[in-house]
C-alpha cells in the first residue's frame, strides 16, 4: 500500500514538474511573469508607480509625526521637500515611459488622495499655489 502511494506521489510530482515543457513557450512565459500576486515586470512603470505610492505613504507618516509634534516645523519642511522631489523624479522617470498631462497638479492631487486614503474623504492639501 505504502509503495503504491509512493509511486503515485512520484508520478504526480514528475507530471507537475514536467508540465511547462509540454506547453507553448508563450504560455510558459506568461505563467512565469504572472507567477505570483502583485506580479509586475521590474523596471516598468508599475514599479515606478509603486515607489511613488511608497513616497506618498512616507509623506502621510511625516505629516502625522508633524501633527504629534515629533517633527518640528523646519525639519518637516525640509523632509517634505525631499520626499516631494523624489516623487517628482519618479514621476518624470515614469513619464519618460508613458504620456499624460500637468505633472504639478497631478502630484498634488495624488498627495491629497494619499492623505484621504486613511479616512476615505478628501483633505485640503494646504498648498496655495497648486
Amino acid at each position: 500500500m505504502g509503495i503504491v502511494i509512493g509511486v503515485l506521489l512520484a508520478v504526480g510530482a514528475v507530471a507537475v514538474i514536467a508540465w511547462p515543457f509540454f506547453r507553448r513557450r508563450s504560455d510558459v512565459a506568461k505563467d512565469d511573469i504572472a507567477g505570483g500576486p502583485g506580479a509586475r515586470p521590474q523596471g516598468s512603470q508599475a514599479e515606478l508607480q509603486r515607489s511613488r505610492a511608497e513616497i506618498f505613504r512616507l509623506i502621510r507618516q511625516l505629516e502625522a509625526d508633524h501633527g504629534s509634534g515629533l517633527v518640528n516645523e523646519g525639519d518637516f519642511r525640509s523632509q517634505f521637500d525631499d520626499l516631494r522631489r523624489e516623487a517628482a523624479r519618479l514621476m518624470m522617470e515614469e513619464a519618460a515611459l508613458s504620456p499624460m498631462s500637468d505633472p504639478a497638479a497631478e502630484l498634488e492631487r495624488e498627495i491629497a488622495a494619499a492623505r484621504a486614503g486613511l479616512t476615505g474623504r478628501p483633505v485640503e492639501t494646504g498648498r496655495k499655489d497648486a
Binding site: 508607480q49 517628482a88 518624470m92 513619464a95 504620456p99 499624460m100 498631462s101 505633472p103 497631478e106
Partner: peptide, 14 residues
C-alpha cells in the same frame, strides 16, 4: 497612484 503625465518630462515639477 495614477500613471505619470507625459508632460512631467518637460515641466519643472519641483
Amino acid at each position: 497612484v495614477r500613471p505619470a503625465p507625459a508632460s512631467a518630462i518637460r515641466s519643472p515639477v519641483v
